[in-house]
Design a binder for these strands. Structure first.
Length: 312
DNA sequence: ATAAGGCCCTGACCGC
DNA sequence: TGCGGTCAGGGCCTTA
């Protein structure tokens, strides 16, 4: 299940291959995938756009586009070089505000670069044909077994991302700020870590791993965390996300259809560092106590009863 | 305002 | 072998 580290890995691996590539055709096979605009407007607006910038916010992928032909005569006179020259120019198109393709993979979504002879299956919901480039992949496809993933095409990405809390690996995320957001909350800290308005990008895996490293019981009410616990939790969230990125995400056992893999098809490596997630009944690496599993906020939750004592 | 529950989806898995 | 039932789970929506 793609969380912040998995999405970051996607963005980093897609960027060099997708940069400068132009979309010449788009086909939507499962209309609900497109959150906005209508499917007709989506396909019409995106054709002719070129992938230009690659970013991430929480679990959202942000693919910045530029219009290939423009009202700017100077830019229009420039022949395409065909080389990767990341331009920092802000919307040279003048009147038209740049479009951003926003992708949320949710549970089982994948955004993959594939050869032209790739055969779309029943899980291939959107196909972008790219203008051919020697040696480059020919198509970008969105594949999603469970169909929870969503794609937006917007000129105002802020509107899609408005509800998100601070970016955890930035200075916007701090123990004090976290404490302020939690102070009035009675829900379990586990449930609150999954709330994207508290901090953006943490999902079920990294929430459990962060709470274990911080030594905090998952049912502890958010508002009862002490300053010391807030410090530990903040540090633990940053640590597990950073390590997750360094290890290119967590690929769990299970079916190939549903498991996260990198755009290249290779697995990530952070699952080898999981200390509690999906280790129910197995000995804690620190104290040998069997890892426990409970359900919180409709999510399976794993923790060590000894290392994460209750004291609320 | 917050919290809790339902919903979207499909493949894996279990018991009979 | 086949069938029906259950589970997983991110984010959004509705309800209390």
């Amino acid at each position: 299940m793609p969380e912040l580290p998995e999405v970051e890995t996607y963005v980093r691996e897609l960027a060099p291959q997708l940069h400068g590539r132009r979309i010449c055709r788009a086909q939507v096979n499962w209309p609900r995938t497109i959150a906005t605009p209508s499917v007709a407007d989506f396909t019409r607006s995106i054709v002719g756009q070129t992938f230009q910038s690659f970013d991430r916010r929480g679990k959202y992928m942000l693919l910045g586009l530029t219009q290939a032909h423009t009202t700017d005569t100077v830019a229009a006179a420039e022949p395409p070089t065909g080389t990767d020259t990341p331009s920092r120019t802000d919307t040279v198109t003048g009147t038209e505000k740049a479009w951003t393709l926003i992708v949320h993979l949710r549970m089982t979504g994948k955004l993959l670069l594939v050869p032209g002879d790739f055969l779309p299956d029943k899980h291939t919901h959107v196909v972008f044909d790219l203008e051919p480039v020697p040696g480059g992949p020919d198509r970008l496809v969105f594949v999603d077994t469970r169909k929870f993933g969503r794609i937006w095409l917007t000129q105002t990405p802020e509107s899609v991302l408005a509800r998100l809390g601070p970016e955890p690996l930035s200075a916007d995320f701090s123990p004090g700020g976290l404490g302020k957001k939690l102070a009035t909350r009675h829900a379990s800290i586990k449930a609150l870590l999954l709330d994207q308005a508290i901090v953006a990008g943490v999902g079920n895996i990294y929430a459990d791993e962060a709470l274990f490293r911080a030594g905090i019981h998952p049912t502890q009410p958010g508002g009862t965390l002490t300053p010391s616990e807030l410090e530990k939790l903040h540090a633990a969230v940053c640590a597990v996300l950073s390590e997750g990125i360094a290890r290119q995400g967590s690929s769990l056992g299970g079916s190939a259809l549903q498991n996260y893999v990198r755009p290249s098809g290779s697995p990530g490596g952070f699952q080898e560092e999981h200390r509690v997630f999906r280790r129910t009944g197995q000995p804690c690496f620190v104290c040998q106590t069997p890892v426990a599993r409970i359900t919180l906020a409709q999510r399976s939750t794993h923790y060590c009863p000894a290392c994460q004592p209750r004291h609320d």
